[in-house]
Each structure stands twice: as C-alpha cells, then as structure tokens.
Design a protein around this nucleic acid. Structure first.
Lengths: 339, 339
DNA sequence: ATGAAAGCGCTAACAT
DNA sequence: ATGTTAGCGCTTTCAT
C-alpha cells in the first residue's frame, strides 16, 4: 500500500548520503560535481527500484518553472480548435511539457480570469487565441518575460509572436471564385467581432466585390457557440433576402448551422444558393453537394505555434526574435459553388 | 513593472501583522479565529489594492490539494469527447477546479505515463475513458484514496464509479430496427477492442441477429485515429462484401470514414446500403440522406461524471457510495435506414 | 567529491 | 485575538 510518497530525503537516508547529492545526480549534474560513477549508479538503481518520482510541485515552487503550457482556445468542442489542440498537445508531451487548456468563448472577462489562474500555476508559456480587449493582460505577461504565442488572430497593438493565416486574401480569393462562377449577390455571414481574423475576412470579401462593382451583403451575428441562438437569425436572414445567390460562411461553426437552416428551408445548393465556408471539416466534405471550403492548414498552424513557443522556452536561445507567421489557406473548390 | 510577485509575507509586513493572520483571513477562517472585523477589512482591502494572489503551487505543496482535475479522453479531437470535455470543463471551473486534459489514443503505455504525471502534479481527481490493461494503475489510485470516475467504458475488475450508456441494448435495438426494415445482411464495422463498450455493442448486435436467425458479419479494424489507416480496410471490406445490405458503424469516427468510403465507391444510401452509426454528429445530421444515429446523451454524461467526481472531492460527504450510472441512448431514425 | 542549510510561499499546530 | 514556528519537497549556495 504505497500510502506515502517517497521524497528525496528517503532516498538519501537509505543510502546514507545527503539529499543534495541525490538532487545533483538526478538533475544530471553528477559530472559537473564530480560525483563518483559508482555512487551515481547506486542512486539511480535505488530510485528505479523504489519507483521514486520527484515531486514536481516542490520543484516548481523552488525553480519557478512548471513544465506546463497554458492553451486558451475559443471553444475546445470546435473541430478547428480541437484538432489544433491535439497536435499541440502531442508535440508538447514529446518535449516534456504538459498542457492545461481552456475555452474562452471569446469572453474577455473569463479570459482575464483564466490568464490569472495560469500565472498562478506558474505556467511556463501561453498559447492564446485572444478575444477582444485582452491587450493589457497579454502585455503584462510579456512585460514579465513570459512567452506568449497567439494564433488564429492577433492583437495589432501588442508586439508578440503569432501564427495566423492570410485571411484577407483567402476571403478575397473565395469571393472572386464565386464572382467568376457568375454569382452576383454574394452575402457574407459572420460574427460581429473586432478580432483581426474576422475583420480581415470581411475586408477581403468587400475588396473583391468592390473590384467587380458588386454590393456587399454583410450579416453579422452575435458570437455564440450555442447553435440554438444562431439558427434563428440565420433563418430570418435567408428568408428575407431571397435575392442572394451565394453565401460565404465566416467560420465552420456558422457554416454548420447555416447548412442546417438551408436544409430546413429546402433551399438547394448550388442552384438556389452557392455556398463557400471558412474552415474545412468532415461535414463539408461529406455534404451533398460537398461544400467549397477555405481550408486552414491546422497541422502547420499547430506545428508553428508549438515550435515557436518551445524555442522561446529554451533558455539557450536567449533572445529569439519575434515571429509573425502567416500561413496560406487552400480553397477547396467543391460542388456547392459551381454553376 | 510587476517583476516580483507579492507573497503573503509582504501583505503581513505592510500591515505589521503576522502572515498567519493574513492566511486565516484569506481562507475565510477569520470568524472561527475571532479576528476583528476591522482587521479583516484592512487586510482584504490591501489584498485587493495590490492585487495579491496566493501562490497556488505553494498552497498545493502544503495542503496536498491542487484544485486540478485530470481528464483523460481517447482523443480530444473526436467531437464526442471534445463536447464532453467542454461541458466538464465548464462545470469544473464553476466549482473552482481546473482541468488538465490529455488524449490516450487508447495507448496503455501512454496512459500509464499520463497517470504518473497527474499524480506527480497532485491532481485531486481523475476522469478517465480507460484503455485496456490499465486496471492496476486505476486500482493503485483507488488504493491511495484518489477519486476516479470512469466514463464511456468501465473496467469490470475495478470497483469504481463510472458513467456509461446501455451499449448492449443500444446496439441490439439499432440492429432490430434494421431487421424490422427488412435488411438481412447486416454488418457491424467496429474496432478490435476488449473495451467494455465495444464488447457490449458487438454483443447486442449479435443477440439481435441470433434472435432473427441471421448471420453476423463482423469486421474489426485496428484502432487508429488517423483516417488514412481506416479508409483502406473499409474500402476493401465493402468491395469484397457486396452482399451486405446494411451496416452499423461502431463509433462516429469509423462512421465518418465509412461515409467517405461509401461516397468514393458510389454506393448509394439506403438503396444499396442502409447505414446506422453509434454516436451522433453534425456530419450525420447534415448528410443526404441523414444518417440514423445511436445518439449518446453527452450533456448528461458530462454532468453525471463531474457531479460524481465533485461529490467525492467534497470532504463533507465522507463515504459517498460507489456509483455505476448507465444512461440511455436515443436511436435517431433518419433516412439512411429506411427501405 | 559531498554535505549543511537556507529558502521558494504557504498552512496549521501550538503558543501567548 | 494574533503571532511563532515547523514543515511540505525541492534546488542551490557555500563550506568542507
């Protein structure tokens, strides 16, 4: 019955040496401290035998490092974020880091709280898909030399590393695609948000329309991860605007809800309405017709995020330059947007 | 520049009192210790003013409690698990707990490691969708009085709380539904696994067939979360067995891959092949035709899991009895399984 | 080449 | 009603 965990003192006592020596050996400083190979051997053997594990809490308290990375996504049940989270998690574990994650739901207050909790836990690094209004809190982290990597969107007024995609061009490109197919009344259905990615998507959309002398039809929904609150406004929007012949969904979440509404209303794709959506997912791939998607390179995003953070966490690389990485999306053209 | 975090001593010094007093006040034991309301006020005021936050690492080291719950799912990017994770996370935060999560990918060794890490971090409680072969490790946790709640599947040889659904009946019921629609050659496509939920699903399926004097057609895939490794065996299976007229997918992940294959092969649902899948998702709801699904009550599962764990974490409720909760699924009958 | 001891920030038993 | 002090388990400086 392993009721009581062994401590470094137990190991030391059992071998009649001091805990200092054990600590040195366990931290690979035996050479440096010129501890005899023989002693090292004996310590390591006992440690393995009794299954001694250092208490990482005590270690963290002492060193200030926790080997934990805080990951804040918008909503972990959103496949875009969960797939990124998973890739990050894998790479983190490989490198000896654990992840504490949480969902912000784009709620500024909740996010502030969460950052506080993370600080509290001496999290070593932060990965954040930042909601609006969080600039000061992120700046504070930076001021205290805590590494922060943003992704999916960034904060223009905060000078930190971030990984995003070329949202403006992606939206522009998708809109051009629809225009090229002969659609004239192209709506963008998105969230009302000052977040960079949303702004850029709207901008790109508008630029393409302007270039072709078409009028934007912008419908902005209040952010909500509960489909219930999305279905109704989308329904009334589509009912009202019978004139639109194509629609771009600003996120996969809006798109999935939008497709449900389209189904309900008996609108047929693409003859009544062409459809393009940001993000890709199984839903789009398997839909009939399959939905044209602006596919984000989730694997690349995750890799860049964690690589960037790990490099900043590495004390060897003292002053790693601030990285702003913009990755490219791919417009997967499918049946939903062809005339 | 808030370089150095304040400690409880700083607060005490600034007020010329002892840190004990501050500690008592901060932990709501002022009444009990009959500390003057006036002093309490002053302390609280200063704490708020300077934004003092207790170092939870030190607290954990001292108390042995971390206010962290370890959550181990099969794969966080699977919508079934991510939606449950999110609900659990929400309830946990409401109750002052944070979540450290990770994906096991049904890998026993990885899971053992992970449990070790969690112990190390003095996680207060464990929520696990257990892979096979993890019985001893879970028993060890229990032996050390650490609360564990299993979900999605359970370990028959370990006496602990768990939340599952009635897999056997659900599979039986879904199979009966297909039989009732007139299908005769009904296949079950599932993972090869000794996990309880998979075993039960196969059992229910077989029982229904037996009752109707039909032969089971069981295809077991090696577990893999990468669709690439699923698509090929499913393809060759469907190519070979042209005789089957209905198929039941054992999980949403298999189902999604299965639908892709069916699409690729140009098989039409339900005329060539009827389809039913375990779990529900947007993919099924939006598919044409929509896919009949054995829908698990994710919200209820999450609620029961976290409620059970919180009750065990609550020191007031000394000896909470071991709960085994079996929830019911709902067979959402859709176009994919009607003749 | 190894050890003693201080201290990370906190709680709680034991004074007073 | 408030303070003193001893740890929790670890790292690390300074001695020897």
């Amino acid at each position: 019955m392993p009721q009581k965990r062994l401590s470094i003192v137990d190991i030391a006592n059992q071998l009649n040496i001091s805990k200092t020596t054990v600590s040195f050996i366990l931290n690979g400083r035996a050479q440096e401290k010129r501890i005899s190979a023989e002693l090292v051997e004996r310590v390591l053997k006992l440690v393995k035998e009794v299954g001694y594990k250092p208490n990482s809490l005590a270690k963290s308290l002492r060193t200030g490092k926790s080997n934990i990375i805080g990951l804040m996504v918008e909503d972990i049940s959103n496949p875009f974020f969960s797939s990124i989270a998973r890739l990050i998690e894998d790479r983190a574990y490989e490198n000896g880091y654990k992840i504490i994650y949480c969902s912000t739901y784009n709620n500024t207050e909740k996010t502030k709280d969460l950052i506080g909790m993370f600080r509290d836990r001496h999290v070593d690094g932060y990965i954040i898909a930042p909601p609006e209004g969080i600039e000061d809190d992120v700046s504070d982290l930076l001021k205290d030399n805590l590494p922060v990597v943003l992704f999916d969107r960034y904060l223009p007024l905060v000078d930190t590393d971030y990984i995003i995609v070329n949202n403006l061009f992606s939206a522009y490109n998708a809109t051009q695609h629809l225009i090229g197919q002969g659609y004239k009344n192209i709506a963008l259905l998105t969230f009302f948000s000052n977040q960079s990615q949303m702004q850029d998507r709207a901008k790109g959309y508008k630029m393409a329309l302007k270039e072709n002398n078409l009028k934007p039809i912008l419908k902005e929904l209040t952010f909500n991860q509960n489909p219930k609150y999305l279905v109704e406004p989308i329904t009334s929007f589509l009912r009202k605007r019978k004139d639109i012949d194509a629609i771009i969904f600003g996120t996969n979440h809006i798109g999935t809800c939008g497709l449900k509404v389209i189904n309900n209303l008996g609108i047929s794709i693409p003859s009544d309405l062409a459809v393009v959506s940001f993000d890709d997912s199984d839903v789009y791939e398997l839909h009939s017709p399959p939905i044209t998607a602006i596919s984000q390179p989730t694997e690349e995003i995750a890799n860049n995020v964690i690589t960037t953070l790990l490099s900043k966490l590495n004390p060897a690389a003292e002053n790693v330059k601030t990285h702003a990485i913009t990755l490219h999306t791919e417009l997967a053209i499918r049946g939903s947007s062809k005339k």
